[in-house]
Design a protein around this nucleic acid. Structure first.
Length: 450
DNA sequence: ATCGGCTCGCGCAA
DNA sequence: TGCGCGAAGCCGAT
């Protein structure tokens, strides 16, 4: 049973009349398990007595996406396609703009179910499908624990303003999802599709222009990888998560961010696993996974400038502006930063980490962003460089969390602190702070060994 | 090692 | 209208 607040009916009163299948246009929730949109599609198909077809539109033009992002995603889709077929659901992968692929297949659909996306292009795609589909369209939110507009109908100021709203709704929404039985198996639907298992062939077909490719240190995509990682995290790391999650010297975090970004695992599945384990570590994980993550979604949904300096609160822009003439020393170019060629070994290690692995330790990610503010000519330029490097190298780049995380470095969702050069009253971070708290030699050695 | 002050604005209590 | 308090900090005083 899918909680009705996850389902948004865009049919405008139109009724399903003809059509030979229910189409689930999969775009964000790229998984065959714990997927509310998929379960709604299967349940509706059963009610209508037709099979379910899942379609994915694969475009080589995805904003800022690099080969390493595509490979990770396609590894996951290959597995998802197989899992769906085993369940009696057809999977159709087509090259093209996602909304166009969805509308091609909607022509023969009785009903379209789609998942939710919160960035502006994702919302525009869904609007296009809603307006263009010849049948009713349901949007189902499966990549959040609390549906975004149910949690809050406005931009929240900080975690503390969203937290009580989320906690009030947790009881009703932190509920496991039972798979719906498939009544009408999809046989040969006569629907043209690419071969989803041919990851390298698809990569070639996309003619990608980006030059940031997968390395042997990058994670492998896919739901089974995510589930395996989740199980290891819950048994081995969660008991120490409260005390050690901030320490970059060792890996005590879940590392699930890329899998969550591509929807290869549901936040609900992660939350339920942590909740079942219990303890302070679980409390901390749920705070990050639900309150902080869904604050990021609230941010991109309600702040139209989420990818620009203008997204920052007034006080932050005022104080950074007041200090825009402060002497910066050293100053690095975007190129020097990208090459990890600064005089700071800790920063260089963090940058090396994203270049080689596609991920960066959570704590270092804050330090890394704060230092770019300190080492470039203007806070506007710093913001742009930080976001560009983040999105280019991190496997979870372009996630709402990425936008909120970068903006946090510049004052978003935070409060003012003691005024100082360059930062003004935006919270600063220093090398000394890292040395005081952590074994930084262990961190740099770990990254150097990659 | 620990502690207070720094500084703003939201949201609740009154 | 007043007041408490907040993602991860920093610095200087004790």
């Amino acid at each position: 049973m899918v909680h009705p607040s996850r389902i948004h009916d865009h049919s405008g009163g139109s009724l399903p009349v003809s059509g030979r299948y229910v189409l689930y246009w999969m775009q964000a929730s790229q998984r065959a398990r714990c997927n509310h949109a998929l379960e709604v599609a299967i349940a509706e198909a059963g009610r209508l007595g037709v099979p379910t077809v899942v379609a994915f539109g694969l475009t080589g033009q995805y904003p800022e996406a690099q080969p390493r992002h595509y490979r990770f995603m396609l590894q996951g889709l290959a597995e998802t396609a197989q899992d769906l077929r085993e369940r009696g659901v057809a999977f159709c992968l087509r090259l093209g703009e996602p909304p166009e692929v969805a509308l091609e297949l909607a022509a023969e659909a009785r009903l379209v179910v789609m998942d939710a996306g919160y960035l502006r292009h994702q919302r525009a795609w869904r609007t296009k499908v809603t307006r263009g589909a010849p049948c009713p369209v349901l949007e189902v939110e499966s990549d959040v624990v609390i549906p975004a507009r149910v949690a809050s109908d406005k931009e929240e100021y900080a975690a503390r303003t969203l937290r009580p709203k989320i906690h009030r709704l947790l009881g009703a929404h932190l509920r496991s999802l039972e798979p719906s039985p498939v009544h009408v198996f999809a046989g040969d639907m006569g629907v043209a599709t690419e071969d989803a298992s041919d990851v390298e062939g698809l990569l070639s077909a996309l003619n990608l222009t980006g030059d940031v490719d997968t390395t042997p240190h990058c994670l492998v995509g896919g739901t089974s990888q995510a589930v395996e990682r989740l199980e290891g995290f819950v048994t081995r790391r969660l008991p120490h998560y409260h005390d050690r999650r901030s320490d970059p010297a060792e890996e005590w975090t879940s590392g699930l961010s890329p899998y969550l970004h591509f929807g290869q695992i549901a936040p609900l599945e992660v939350a339920l696993a942590a909740q079942e384990a219990g303890g302070q570590g679980a409390e901390d994980l749920l705070e990050e996974l639900i309150v902080r993550r869904e604050l990021s979604i609230n941010f991109v949904l309600h702040n139209p400038a989420y990818d620009r300096y203008e997204c920052l609160p007034e006080w932050a822009r005022a104080t950074l502006g007041k200090h825009s003439e402060d002497i910066r020393d050293p100053i690095y170019t975007a190129e020097e930063l990208e090459q990890a060629a600064t005089a700071d070994p800790y920063w260089n290690a963090a940058q090396r980490e994203i270049r080689l692995t596609g991920a960066m330790h959570n704590y270092m990610r804050m330090y890394w962003g704060k230092k770019i503010l300190e080492w470039t000519r203007t806070p506007e330029e710093a913001f742009a460089i930080t976001l560009a490097l983040n999105n280019r190298y991190c496997l979870d780049g372009r996630d709402p969390n990425s936008y909120a995380g970068v903006a946090w470095c510049y004052g978003k969702h935070d409060r003012p602190w003691q005024e100082r050069a360059v930062f003004g009253t935006v919270r600063s971070m220093t090398r000394g702070g890292l040395d005081r708290k952590f074994n930084m030699a262990a961190y740099t050695e770990r990254v150097e060994a990659l």
